Simulated scan of single mutants.
Amino acid sequence: MDYSRHTAEDFALDDFFVSWVKSPDDETDTFWRQWLAIHPEKRAEVEAARSLIRQIAFRTYAAGPEASAEGWATLSAAIDGWEYARRDQTPDPSATVRPLPAPFRGWLRVAASLTAILLAAGFAWYTYAARTTLRTGYGETRRIVLADRSVVTLNANSSLSYRKHWGRNRDREVWLAGEAFFEVVHTENHRKFVVHTAGDLDVEVLGTKFNVYGRQHSTRVLLNDGKVQLNIGQDRRRQVTMRPGELVELDAATGGYVRKVVDPAQFSSWVHRYLLFKDTPVREIVALVQDTYGVTVAMPDSSLLQSRMTGRVPNNNLESLLFALSESLDCEVERDNGRILFRPRPGSGAATGGDRR
């Protein structure tokens, strides 16, 4: 969804935005905070929409059994006759209740039937179109099978929002905050599958395998198999078609993007519970550790961040990853209330900034 051109009124009518204002959760809060960080110029419209939503009193009606029974009883009473006496008046024994003529009774029965059908249809549609949100904690991954049998593997500290049922002719849309690997099934009627991110990027496919990374500091897409189209920019009008083995990363500073050919395994190996580094800057590895496990990593010797690593390390727990990183950098690891400090071992030469293989 392209929110960059939304007015305050548009935001106030968007169900995903309204759910954030009325009942914020981790998924909606993460998405909109990241979006506002990327689009600070829209903050005035967002705040105006939030104020508008809070001033409106919404009432929700559910077609439960008791409500349906009560409504039917009321309509039946109207069909059988009119009662004009007020509750605080003494009934007149001589008063008679005149039954409605047969044609009017027939019309009222039709109206009652239509009312019941509309209530049931409204409730069914609400259930059908309701959006589901699944999320993972730090250090956790999750496999999700969607209604069309497409499979999503959700990485740690991420969330995915989608409708349980898309309908036969609607686009298959999902909203991602964090990172996920998609295995999209091609449908007989060629329905598009669209991944919305908080950055200026949507991914549009028919059937393929790809990895989407969308966090506050970076947005990128890796194509493993098939073909995808990226819709880039605030207006989503710039289109980029990717080929297998390509990675496209947005440049938040310029609004442009970088396209390059990579080894797909390097960027989707986390699905198989290991990390593959190929001349990877330690700065990127530190960001990965912080995003995945929710810890703060500090390296007082800034030259360590310029180092590069090549190798394969397990990703099934934080301890294994920290051990591999400390051995490669020849550093000691200190912990302090969720803060992890890397210090070069005395005389190790780890601060020279050379490559770590």
Rank of each mutant, 00 (worst) to 15 (best):
172 R>F: 13
172 R>V: 06
173 E>V: 12
173 E>K: 06
174 V>A: 08
176 L>Y: 10
177 A>Y: 02
178 G>W: 04
180 A>N: 07
180 A>T: 07
180 A>H: 03
181 F>M: 04
181 F>Q: 03
182 F>R: 00
182 F>P: 00
182 F>Y: 11
183 E>T: 14
184 V>R: 05
184 V>P: 05
184 V>D: 07
186 H>L: 10
187 T>S: 11
188 E>T: 14
189 N>G: 09
189 N>K: 03
190 H>Q: 08
191 R>P: 00
191 R>V: 09
191 R>H: 07
191 R>T: 11
193 F>R: 00
195 V>Y: 06
195 V>W: 00
196 H>E: 00
196 H>C: 04
196 H>K: 09
196 H>F: 08
197 T>I: 12
198 A>N: 06
198 A>M: 09
199 G>S: 14
199 G>Y: 08
200 D>C: 06
200 D>W: 03
200 D>T: 15
200 D>A: 14
201 L>M: 15
201 L>H: 02
202 D>V: 00
203 V>A: 02
203 V>E: 01
204 E>F: 08
205 V>G: 01
206 L>C: 04
206 L>G: 05
206 L>A: 13
208 T>P: 04
208 T>S: 11
209 K>V: 08
210 F>C: 00
210 F>N: 09
210 F>G: 05
213 Y>I: 09
213 Y>C: 03
216 Q>M: 12
216 Q>L: 14
217 H>C: 09
217 H>T: 15
218 S>G: 13
218 S>Y: 11
220 R>C: 03
220 R>D: 07
221 V>H: 00
222 L>I: 11
222 L>M: 12
222 L>N: 05
224 N>T: 09
225 D>P: 01
225 D>R: 13
226 G>P: 06
227 K>Q: 10
227 K>E: 10
227 K>A: 12
228 V>T: 02
229 Q>W: 12
230 L>Q: 02
231 N>D: 14
231 N>K: 13
231 N>F: 04
232 I>M: 12
232 I>C: 07
233 G>A: 10
233 G>E: 13
233 G>D: 13
234 Q>W: 03
237 R>C: 09
238 R>I: 13
238 R>L: 11
238 R>H: 10
239 Q>H: 13
243 R>A: 15
243 R>E: 15
245 G>Q: 01
245 G>K: 01
247 L>S: 12
247 L>G: 07
247 L>K: 03
248 V>T: 09
248 V>G: 02
249 E>R: 07
250 L>A: 00
250 L>R: 04
251 D>N: 15
251 D>G: 07
252 A>H: 13
252 A>N: 15
254 T>S: 14
255 G>V: 10
